[in-house]
């Protein structure tokens, strides 16, 4: 049914709960350490590593949103217990 519909269904997302990585992940620390002036270089490096082109029409908006994500992440990611596992969430 879901294959016929042409998109992954809700049974296909188990990978989201499988990672035991810590909040002190170097990638997270590097991201949080950015400032708005260094986001562009970070984005270019990440895009190259991912094989993701940023067409000119998308660049300004993408950088603005990435900088916003960094600022938002800084509000909750700094003080987390890095040893805590990620649980399969129950409300």
């Amino acid at each position: 049914m879901l294959v016929a519909a042409g998109y992954p269904g809700y049974e296909d997302f188990s990978y989201l709960w499988s990672s035991p990585r810590m909040a002190t992940d170097p990638a997270l620390a590097a991201f949080l350490a950015l400032d708005d002036d260094t986001v562009a270089a970070y984005a270019d490096d990440r895009a190259a590593a991912l094989g993701l082109a940023l067409p000119p029409e998308t660049r300004a908006g993408t950088l603005e949103n990435l900088a916003l994500l960094r600022r938002q992440a800084a509000t909750f990611a700094m003080d987390l217990d890095a040893a805590a596992p990620i649980e399969a969430f129950e409300p």
């Binding site: 990672s19 909040a23 590097a30 991201f31 970070y42 984005a43 998308t58 993408t62 949103n65 990611a77």
Partner: peptide, 13 residues
């Protein structure tokens, strides 16, 4: 696109 570029560790946090 910004979400694709952000590290997965942010989502994990």
């Amino acid at each position: 696109l910004a979400g694709a570029l952000a590290p997965e560790a942010v989502a994990e946090a």
